[in-house]
């Protein structure tokens, strides 16, 4: 008997055993993963919702209650039940009297290191962005991550002008980041020295996102108010 034949025969004898071992371990592992997934899913969902809610309360000062709305294909907002489509959800915030304070929207874009995800609150009455919170960023610690912490930078978003132009379908001025100390108009974001790229990225993200969302929200303000009164 040649050597090759021998190996073949041993392999054939073992293949059943190998199959048994792999399938057995596979089934066991799958079971473990499913059990853990099922066990932790409600907790993870609750924690994530809590974190989002906390962020919404931060970007819309003075609210007591928040509700999620889904943007439909015909550019209408409808109350959201269950999970919404990514990037199509707006969160309306109301004060204790049930009056609409503002709408929070998520925005994202390329930063210096990775995608930056932010949440900002829009107040249709003031026609301004009233709050800003970084949901996720991997910007350089000590430099780029100042977009999350720097109080002067955060102050840009206490009343960032996003008034609509006459046609009500575009913004009068695009939100833009300028060099530190060069802010002259209410729609400009004062950049951070030493974090030029990250602060400019925020300017771009906000510029693109507000240009899309603000006219939509402004036009459909009624949808948020009516639904709350029902």
């Amino acid at each position: 008997m040649t050597e090759a034949n021998q190996i073949q025969k041993t392999a054939a004898g073992n293949s059943l055993k190998m199959l048994q071992a792999m399938v057995g371990i596979g089934i066991f592992c799958a079971l473990m993963i499913v059990l853990t997934f099922q066990g932790t899913l409600p907790i993870i969902k609750k924690k994530k919702a809590e974190a989002l809610e906390k962020a919404i309360f931060k970007v819309l000062p003075g609210i007591e209650k928040t509700e999620a709305y889904q943007l439909g294909q015909d550019d209408n907002f409808t109350p959201l039940a269950g999970e919404g489509k990514e990037g199509q959800v707006a969160y309306a915030g109301y004060d204790q009297n049930g009056k609409l304070v503002g709408v929070a929207v998520e925005a994202s874009g390329q930063g210096y290191a990775d995608i930056i995800r932010v949440l900002y609150g829009y107040d249709p009455e003031k026609q301004a962005v009233v709050g800003f919170y970084v949901l996720e960023s991997k910007e350089t610690p000590g430099l780029g991550d100042k977009i999350e912490k720097d109080p002067n930078f955060q102050a840009n978003f206490e009343a960032l002008d996003v008034s609509l132009a006459d046609g009500q379908s575009t913004l009068k001025n695009t939100v833009i980041t300028v060099k530190n100390g060069a802010k002259q108009n209410p729609w400009e974001i004062d950049g951070i020295t030493g974090a030029t790229i990250s602060s400019r990225a925020i300017g771009n993200i906000m510029g693109v996102s507000t240009a899309y969302w603000v006219p939509l929200i402004y036009k459909n303000q009624a949808a948020f108010i009516e639904n709350n009164e029902q």
Binding site: I25, C29, T36, T40, I44, K47, K48
Partner: peptide
């Protein structure tokens, strides 16, 4: 296979402990 299983479990558990 065994290691990956426990890593996936750990992943879920850490998410459940703290999202941050």
């Amino acid at each position: 296979l065994i290691i990956a299983t426990f890593v996936t479990m750990t992943d879920y558990m850490i998410q459940a402990i703290s999202v941050d």
